[in-house]
Design a protein around this nucleic acid. Sequence first.
DNA 1: GATATGTTTTTTTTT
DNA 2: AAAACATATC
Length: 765
Amino acid sequence: MHKYLEGLNANQLEAVQHIDGPIMIVAGAGSGKTKVLTTRIAHLMKNGVDAFNILALTFTNKAAAEMKERVEKALGNSEARNLYIGTFHSIFARLLRADATKLGYPANFTIYDTDDAKGVIKDIVKEMNLDDKHYKPAYIYNRISAAKNALIGPVEYRNDPHIQQEDTRGNAPRPLMADIYATYANRCMKNGAMDFDDLLYNMYILLTKFPDVLAKYQHRFHYILIDEYQDTNTAQYAIIKMLGARRENICVVGDDAQSIYSFRGATVQNILQFQDDYDDVKVVKLEQNYRSTTNILNVANNVIGNNQNQIPKELWTNNKEGDKIVLARTMTDNDEGRFVADAIKEQQMRNHYANKDFAILYRTNAQSRSFEESLRRMNIPYKLYGGVSFYTRKEVKDYLAYLRLIVNTRDEENLKRIINVPARGIGKTSLDRIIVTAHEQDKTLWELMEHGSGHAKIDQFVMMIKSFQTMLQTKNAYDVAFAVGKHTGFVQELYNDKTVEGLARYENVQELLNSIKEFTETPDEEGELLDKSLGSYLQQVSLQTDTENQNGDDIDVVKLMTIHSAKGLEFPCVFSVGLEETLFPSQMSLYDRAGLEEERRLFYVAITRAKERLWVTYANSRYRFGSLVQNEESRFIQEIPVSYIDRTFTGISNRPGSNTPTRGGTSFQNENFDKVPSLKKLADKLAATQQAKQQTPAYTPPANFEGDAPEKMEVGMKVQHPKFGFGTIQSLEGGANNRIAGIDFGAGHGVKKIMLNYAKIKIVG
DNA sequence: GATATGTTTTTTTTT
DNA sequence: AAAACATATC
């Protein structure tokens, strides 16, 4: 047997050695899925398949990079670099470059991220004179996104009676949705830009409308492999089907129990029905788990057993039993943070774990705060994955906007973004005038400005951008980017800002420049001259999320991330935190079975990331939107059989910084919890305060309302405000010309800081 | 046109 | 609580 096939179990071997015809690999968590995929690719190549004829699609760049690396290792040569391995989005972006002009886009089209797209929608809503409180850009974006992922274009959208009903019925009708969608699609094309969903949708359109293009790729890709097939949406499904129709050498790998992306249009039906899509589908189940202890796996199996819809399978392991899992309940989110940091320290002392052996997994990015604080306090190094991405920081987006504009001047969004950054005297009024004229003449902003605008500062700006464009042909991405930073004054301005935030911004821009430099300095591989142009750089950076490329695997730090970003990863010790109703499961998911089952699958994913030790934690109360809220424990807690639980901790131990007393350390029966108000009491209290609010009569200001002079005010005085009504002065601060009073207006408005120079305040007693 | 101040919104999850 | 946004003032 070949060396690369050693160490595979019977089922894995069967999956690897199947060469022609459709195959579905149902791979449970930790069953060696990536190993099978990579070995199968190596096996195909050992059997004479050319790397150029293999297409492998993943969901993250990280997964793609790992796959490429492991194939290379298995092969022992550099042939793997010719493989088409990448995310759906990056591979399709690459393929679309070649034929974008057929669809009316420039070859160097811009890729809009979510913020860019929402910005365009916001502009459109404004232009149509609609209320953006009702036509919320985020809502519209999601709706358009869902349509595209279901292959519903603007025309189909308008003509679909069911969709029209959704948009026009109900208590919040949005009858102009179809118009906005159509305008948005037009605007994007005019801007020469595609959003994330367009990369899929337009790929589908390209293959459907141009049979020669379809034929080209059908002949190129003899073997297609799809990772995480349970997370594919309708558009991805249709494209795969078309690309693979000629040979049907399609290999899909997935686990219906880990389907957690339905909000992105993913439909688990794709994997459930794969066997109906093709004749003679070979099905291989990988049910042996090599990752987790028996206890952890049993917990996972029990939890997921509460779901109704699933492919029957039995995940088992030969691994040792391991410790029971630790269930911990704390008073507040801060206590939860402290508990986790303490537990990490304790494990490091007792069992000699390194920092990088720990992961803290949460439902929402906003939960990271308390863990960051506690880890920092205990000097435990950590790294945050996801959240506000490096590439969505304002200064980075501004810099990239310059670069994108230079490559694609059709794009108004990026032009508008930086035309006055740094300030060069082209303000809102001038800009609005150009926008109106351009739209009247059906031209892009750039077309209008290009040949002289009659506005000296704008002409100067145009000349500058043009000078950068001349560099595109001869200079690499870094040289152009550097020149842009220098000649626009952009970098200088950030450098001059010596505030803490300004310093951070300057550093971020330097980091961006470094990454561009790194891009241009990647050595050419033999026989292949890599494209180091700015256009090439922008293409890949637009699809980069910084969960990747920050080679975090090597550094010894605790990792903090959402469960979604943890998919596909594993850690010796895992903390699954925030198991509270309305948080996990999320509030949004509580009302239908499908939503709840997806949350449960998410919990399943969290549990199955753990190899050796697992903690499940939750807090009685936590800050949300700046105010303290009480939560019940998650229903998922009840689904963990008590026999696997080591309930060693409730409450928070008695240590400095904690104001929660504990008796006898960490006992299960802790009296603190008797003091937690019952749900009933809370509900009553809530109702009472709401009633109080309603009983406060609406206040209407008297006519001819005149205020008194600021210097007359004193603490304790009863005063009257035209909007807030009667109140009492609680505090006074600021100098003679800038007096600020803290005034308590009672139940309706509470305490407000009022600037006495501007507000009219009348003394009434 | 830029800056300062006040008001509103944000939280699912990501390519 | 923080950020994004909108309005007012210079």
